[in-house]
Design a protein around this nucleic acid. Structure first.
Lengths: 331, 331
DNA sequence: CTGTTAGCGCTTTCAT
DNA sequence: ATGAAAGCGCTAACAG
């Protein structure tokens, strides 16, 4: 900056003003400065700037469990679309479902002074998030509710979606329905199991533990679990899978078994329409999930800015948004 | 930091030392400082730190065209895995294939003083990248070669993969082969078309312009284009598609037409094995592409650090890595 | 309209 | 082993 100032024969302060588009700089001077900056290929250091301004870094941290899953990459795009519209940049961190990794990422983001964090927690243990929130960093939890502290969050209608899909299977006459789900420790897994169970109960059917398989995360494991169910003496006539890994895995098992088993799932996926068997899915828009998370965060940042230095005391209480599911039928 | 210093009854300098794990601090003092820091929930400001150190921000920028495409999200994970292993964090920007957006992102990353940039350019116009590189920011170009300037880059064996796949179709006896490709302005599109053409030429066949459809980016467009080809008086007996959007689109057209058309493509995708028709694919590992890009960047950063303040002059010349393709056959 | 002073949070250098 | 001063690049606040 000093170099630019010298070249333009002004002080550093004037350079700063020109780059800020401060109107009270003589146009002639401004041009000289801009010319000098261009010739030197100078770009002001945004980090130093935000340090001085104390205004935050203009970065938001996004922590997800698995970016390779289209679900999360679309969520990331949704977040970026919203916060980007407010002049914020998204820093994405991937945890690979690893809690330590998540802890490290969150700490680092806080240390880098991101303006806020959006996180899909890998685990029920969210003490590091509580710490960050307590430290004054706005936190938005996505896809699961905050655990052990208070924060804005955006959820999917897991229970309702699972209940509706299960009902659809019941309406089609199925009475023996298998269930392939996420580990019950994961909120979405527990909720979807609850929705499934409630639908059964409403139909006067008791959930059969032997029809329930939990915890498989990869399609290959899901295929094995589904094959197990189909090999039972009285096999289920339909399978409900709580995520697309399980749905695809179950599909392969059904195809291999050759039985006319009906399939239902949570999360839509590409090519679901060409599988050639009846397939009902509780679909939802992960892009919208991300957007909503972004909106919550931006709103929180806005309040914070409005509150300014004054100790307005009570911040608005935690908001919670729920993204609905829609029923899709193929086959 | 001052607060911590006061609480621990030391100077800010000592706090700084403790947090740096400087050994020449009395253990007792260090403990007092750490306790104070913990009680205050203090985290040192990494941005201010890097400002003072002049050492770069520890961030690398990654600019891709469409993160929703698993290809790019896996590439991003590959990049992150490598650079993360070197203490660097990845800032991802999505351009949506928009050149202006790409320009803005790159400028912003430079202004934020990222240590380096990895970019999948949206367009042949790469002047903003040239500018960044000229400004001293290490740039690695992925998936296409740098245009108009010199930089490290990592490519896929587009030509070889396309040639091999096409040969396979020829070996299977096909003589009328349709081609569904990316816009020719895109490097990968042009190279894959070239590979296709070369294979035909080697077999003594001339490429028929009426069998070539370029530019469709969505599966729906690809389906229409493929349907057009299949409706020709002498329709192709096989289709070669240069990316998975086109492959999936073509698959739908073939299924709808009911003709026994063979299908070949570039880029593997989930469920490719259940489509129920002969499908040959030139597959490659986009994760590896990202890792290689990360490695090139890290190597470059290492050299730069080694060179230090001294004007070693000539930096090592641009490196180029090529990721191979493998042939996969389904059906 | 332009420049000077001071300081954001941290660390290097030089004392002590 | 610890502290005081100076400054990384930038900009508010106050001159002039």
């Amino acid at each position: 900056m000093r170099d630019v100032a010298q070249r333009a024969r002004v002080s550093a302060m004037t350079v700063s003003r020109v780059l800020r588009d401060d109107p009270k700089v003589l146009p002639a001077t401004a041009d000289r400065v801009r010319a000098a900056a261009a010739e030197l290929g100078y770009r002001r250091n945004e980090m130093a700037r935000s340090l001085r301004l104390g205004s935050g870094t203009g970065l938001v941290g996004l922590v997800v469990t698995n970016l390779a899953n289209p679900f999360y990459s679309r969520l990331a795009l949704g977040v970026d679309a919203v916060v980007g519209g407010h002049g914020l940049k998204t820093v994405i961190g991937n945890t690979g479902h690893d809690l330590d990794s998540e802890r490290g990422l969150v700490e680092d983001l806080v240390a880098r002074r991101v303006d806020g964090i959006i996180v899909v927690p890998a685990d029920d243990d969210q003490r590091h998030l509580a710490a960050a929130a307590a430290g004054g960093v706005p936190v938005v939890v996505a896809s699961r509710p905050p655990n052990g502290f208070d924060a804005d969050c955006v959820l999917v209608d897991d229970h309702g979606g699972a209940r509706t899909v299960t009902r659809r299977l019941l309406d089609a006459g199925h009475r023996r329905i298998g269930f392939l789900g996420s580990p019950p420790a994961v909120y979405t897994g527990a909720e979807r199991l609850r929705g499934f169970t409630d639908a059964l109960t409403e139909a006067g059917i008791e959930r059969e533990p032997r029809y329930v398989r939990l915890g498989q995360q990869q399609t290959a494991e899901a295929t094995r679990a589904a094959a197990d169910l189909l090999a039972l003496p009285e096999p289920p006539t339909a399978l409900f899978c709580t995520n697309n890994r399980n749905t695809i895995g179950a599909f392969r098992a059904i195809r291999a078994a050759g039985a006319p088993t009906a399939l239902a799932g949570f999360d839509d996926f590409e090519l679901a329409d060409v599988l050639g068997l009846p397939l009902t899915i509780a679909a939802y828009d992960s892009d919208e999930l991300g957007k909503e998370a972004g909106r919550l965060l931006v709103a929180r940042l806005g309040e914070r800015a409005a509150a300014g230095g004054g100790q307005d005391g009570t911040p608005a209480s935690a908001r919670r948004a729920v993204v609905p599911t829609t029923l899709v039928h193929y086959g």
